[in-house]
């Protein structure tokens, strides 16, 4: 099993979720984060204080999938999130050892869905 973390543009969330849904991947966790990458961000100025962290508002999407579904999920996210501009985001795929459905206690592949 794999755990996928994607950092995307806020406006692309609807399309990413729709694209995942087409692949029948329903379970998604979304959170607000700040990030920077090649899209360097902009220094902020408060009164005369300059803040150079250059972080921009982004959305983090997390999905757990079976090994067979990894590329379908990655492609769906990439297709939903892509605009062709700097700042479209990144996708990270991590190894996942176990998955537990809290309500029933089921584990493993059957708990993922």
């Amino acid at each position: 099993m794999k755990y996928i973390i994607a950092i995307i543009q806020p406006d692309r969330l609807d399309e990413v979720i729709a694209a995942l849904e087409e692949e029948e991947i329903i379970l998604v966790t979304v959170s607000e984060v700040m990030g920077r990458g090649r899209q360097k961000g902009v220094a902020e100025v408060y009164r005369s204080h300059v803040e150079r962290n250059g972080l921009l508002h982004k959305i983090k999407v997390e999905v757990a999938v079976n090994n067979n579904d990894v590329w379908r999920a990655v492609d769906a996210i990439a297709n939903g999130a892509r605009t062709g501009h700097v700042g479209d985001g990144k996708i990270f795929v991590l190894d996942m050892e176990e998955c537990v459905r809290i309500r029933t206690g089921e584990t493993g592949v059957s708990a993922i869905r």
């Binding site: 700040m34 961000g41 902009v42 902020e44 100025v45 408060y46 921009l56 508002h57 501009h85 700042g87």
Partner: peptide, 23 residues
């Protein structure tokens, strides 16, 4: 510019942001 529209007017036109998780 499209790039600035992407980043948002708060940062590009005024160098401030309304909400931040840092600070």
């Amino acid at each position: 510019s499209p790039d600035h529209e992407n980043i948002g007017l708060d940062l590009t036109q005024h160098r401030e942001s309304a909400y931040t998780i840092v600070g």
